[in-house]
Design a protein around this nucleic acid. Structure first.
Length: 345
DNA sequence: AGCAAGACGCGTCATTAGAG
DNA sequence: CTCTAATGACGCGTCTTGCT
């Protein structure tokens, strides 16, 4: 449980602090005169985990309650100094070139470049967030090198090392032993056993791979070097409940030679040898295309996720700024009442 | 129940920004 | 200059909702 205390300082800025409680009150002070609070805004903070924007309930003076997520609050000068904050916000959002701005001269080409620059949701959000601590940033993806598990190096020398779509590493040794290493786990603790069977009458050239560890979404994709691919067994996909009963809740995969129509998401990695024949070149081109499509597919998903997060953040910002605006208007009205000369004397 | 409209997510392609 | 990630745009399928 966290409590978010928001205070409007005498200079108009609003500070927020999180403490261990459930709700808080917002007190506004209007400078030396210490005018009693005009706008009481109840902020019920519900702290969330890392990476997800904190959701905050903001109760307006009118009694209306709004949900605020990932609040970005730049220090607010009072209404009298509003030009200053305007400059800051423009600089933060529009990514203007400071040097050019200071010089006051931007040639048309550069200006066109700036205007036509496509926004990066991650970049914009992170720049907005950099001003205010506590505002969640969009995480940078870890490079593949960072995710490489140390256990791979200590394994028995494998014939092949594959990487799944979930980042796990699969090593297939000469004897047919398959080991799975989870990058997120420590050392050999991440190893998971696979069993390979050829019982019954498998299709020609196919080996059933039973993956003992159930994945989160049940959809594993494998990068397989050479001329083989690992695909989810069709029977498992089509009749999961049936196969689950038959294999003990283990999804089934097949290692088989690639066909013309690869299942979606399955990519064949390049064999180390050089490619010469037209067929090999065609296979290489197909492999590259599939890899590119899969990467773009993942990138598109990630981009949509970032976009949604960005839009949510903007909506939250609008909600907060509306509250602040309302409060400042009331503050201004009060100051006007105090400072206005009496006419009836 | 059937249908249409809208929302939403996904995959793909084209384009661009940015890193090396 | 090249390569790759990020993003907009488009088409498609699915789901929800309101209407008949």
């Amino acid at each position: 449980m966290t409590m978010e205390t928001v205070e409007s300082q005498h200079d108009g800025s609003i500070t927020a602090s999180l403490t261990e409680s459930k709700s808080a009150h917002v007190q506004t002070q209007t400078g030396q005169n210490s005018i009693p609070a005009l706008a009481q805004v109840s902020v019920a903070g519900s702290g969330t985990g890392r990476g997800s924007p904190a959701v905050t309930l903001v109760q307006l003076p009118s009694g209306q309650t709004i949900h605020v997520q990932g609040v970005i609050q730049t220090p607010q000068p009072s209404v009298i100094q509003s030009s200053q904050i305007h400059t800051v916000q423009v600089a933060a959002i529009a990514e203007t070139d400071e040097s050019a701005e200071s010089e006051g001269v931007i040639d048309s080409h550069k200006r066109r470049e700036i205007l036509s620059r496509r926004p990066s949701y991650r970049k914009i959000l992170n720049e907005l967030s950099s001003d205010v601590p506590g505002v969640p940033k969009i995480e940078e993806e870890r490079s593949e090198e960072e995710g490489t598990p140390p256990s791979i190096a200590t394994m028995a020398v494998p014939t092949s090392i594959y990487q799944t779509s979930t980042g796990q590493y699969i090593a297939i040794a000469q004897g047919g032993t398959i080991q799975i290493s989870n990058p997120g786990s420590d050392g050999v603790q991440g190893l998971q056993a696979l069993t390979m069977t050829n019982s019954g009458a498998p299709p020609p050239g196919a080996t059933i791979v039973q993956y003992a560890a159930q994945s989160a979404d049940g959809t594993q994709q494998f990068f397989v070097p050479g001329s083989q691919v690992v695909v989810p067994d069709e029977e498992t996909e089509l009749a999961p409940s049936h196969m689950a009963a038959a294999t003990g809740d283990m999804p089934t995969y097949q290692i088989r030679a690639p066909t013309a129509a690869l299942p979606q998401g399955v990519v064949m990695a390049a064999s180390p040898g050089s490619l010469h024949s037209p067929q090999q070149l065609a296979e290489e081109a197909t492999r590259k295309r599939e890899l590119r499509l899969m990467k773009n597919r993942e990138a598109a998903k990630e981009c949509r996720r970032r976009k949604k997060e960005y839009v949510k953040c903007l909506e939250s910002r609008v909600a907060v700024l509306e509250v602040q605006n309302k409060k400042l208007i009331e503050e201004l009205e009060t100051l006007k009442d105090i400072c206005s000369p009496k006419t009836d004397y």
